[in-house]
Amino acid sequence: MTLDELLDAARSLERDGRDLIARASSAEELAAARTALVGRKSGRLTELMKTLPALAPDARRDAGAAVNRAKEAIEAALSAREAELHRAAPAAPRVDLTMPARRTWRGAIHPVTVVIDEIRDIFRELGFTIAVGPEAETEWYNFGALNFPPNHPAMDAHDTLYLSDDTLLRTHTSPVQIRTLQTYPPPVRVLVPGNVYRRDFFDPSHAPMFSQIEGLAVDEGIGFVDLKATLVHFVNRFFGRRPTRFRPSFFPFTEPSAELDVQCGVCGGAGCPTCKHTGWVEILGSGMVHPAVLDACGVDSERYTGWAFGMGPARVALSRWGIPDIRLLYDSDVRFLEQLAQ
């Protein structure tokens, strides 16, 4: 093939190509046109390229340029037509996008820990740090130092699991008050989360082990008004602004002692089964640290005063999620855990 013949062939290829592309009315026809024109194996352009080596070097350069022009023109026409076809008739989606996503397993923090963490975060803002202590304790740390008289009815609320004559599984987190006050001089502001044990058989509202969280503040010049202010602030942060009330109570290690109620969130105080028709829900126990407790820790009870409170995060979790039976919190049923993680 001469140079001229080849230039003609390139021009006609470009012209025929444009016709062919313009006539293609579907993606399939366009694909067929593409194969016929620029197909790698037997497209017309490929055939034309094969004749190039036969030309003289000078002619080869000109011919190559012409073939390239034709190729570019065809490629441009192909993509233009492709875009046109695409615009004219958008193809049905090849992927069904309603199919479900691919996920990884999702874990979750236990609901009781969620509650503890929220309480902790609020008290952190008020300058409290976290203290912990052993779950196996001596009788002195669990009872004696906390002003429980031996053989006293106050012990009835603390049905105890004993390990030996004078060691036991702590019945409350309060031994940590003693350990902390013996270790650090006032001012002390600590929050104590932890597991505690009672010789209670499982029922919908009792478990032999459960978590407790308590707080302790000891310094000069701390009074009942500070207890009240701090706990009211906490309740407002934790439950939202709701009426509160303090009622007299008794704990051997605090005096005066008070229990804090918050207005029932279900009935708004009108009375309902949740609040046993009282309009109030008990939240926590509290009181001014008994001087005998400070004395037991080597803290001068004339100089220093303090307050403490304790509450059960599990009960909060039960009411927050509407869980009817405390056993669900401890069974570790993955269906329960997955549901709460949603």
Binding site: L126, G127, F128, T129, I130, A131, V132, T180, T183, Y184, P185, P186, P187, V188, R189, V190, P193, A217, D219, I222, F224, V225, D226, K228, A229, T230, V232, H233, R245, F246, R247, P248, P256, A258
Partner: peptide, 23 residues
């Protein structure tokens, strides 16, 4: 009357107890 006492937060001193590392 417990409810008759004021409940305004008063200033307090920072405590001496560091956070328990395990926490």
């Amino acid at each position: 009357g417990y409810d008759a006492f004021p409940s305004e937060l008063r200033p307090y001193r920072i405590g001496n107890v560091p956070d328990a590392p395990i926490e």
